[in-house]
């Protein structure tokens, strides 16, 4: 059975760029779901089978850190891995994300090679 990914970013441009980078990196998913913030992401996770989440941090309504915190409280979805893709590089913010269950981070801007290097081993 193929894998499904959820892209969470308030920028539709960035969601398209991440999707393009996945293809350029040779990483294929059966389904690419999209969400514009943490609230939408939680709704997708409750409804769809998702194998991994790629999430921004700075977003309206519910940011990436609050999304991780809320997801960790829901037993049915808490084990789905989340990789942060963000302009945030500060150790304390990335550290907080990891303490809430994030499995790693990719800094924007990024190349398809960088996506492959970090995401590949997680699949």
């Amino acid at each position: 059975m193929g894998k499904n990914v959820l892209l969470v970013d308030d920028s539709s441009t960035m969601r398209k760029i991440i999707g393009r980078s996945l293809r350029q990196a040779g990483i294929e998913f059966d389904n690419i779901f999209e969400a514009g913030d943490g609230l939408e992401a939680l709704a997708v996770l409750e409804k769809e089978k998702v194998d991994i989440v790629l999430s921004d941090i700075n977003m309206p309504n519910m940011d990436g850190i609050s999304f991780l915190r809320e997801k960790a409280n829901r037993s049915n979805i808490k084990n789905i891995p989340v990789l942060m893709i963000s302009t945030e590089t500060g150790d304390d913010i990335i550290g907080e994300a990891k303490s809430l269950g994030a499995v790693g981070s990719i800094k924007k801007p990024f190349t398809p090679d960088k996506v492959n290097e970090i995401l590949g081993p997680l699949l």
Partner: peptide, 8 residues
């Protein structure tokens, strides 16, 4: 998004 990445 360009401004966002530059700001970061």
């Amino acid at each position: 998004e360009l401004a966002n990445m530059l700001g970061g």
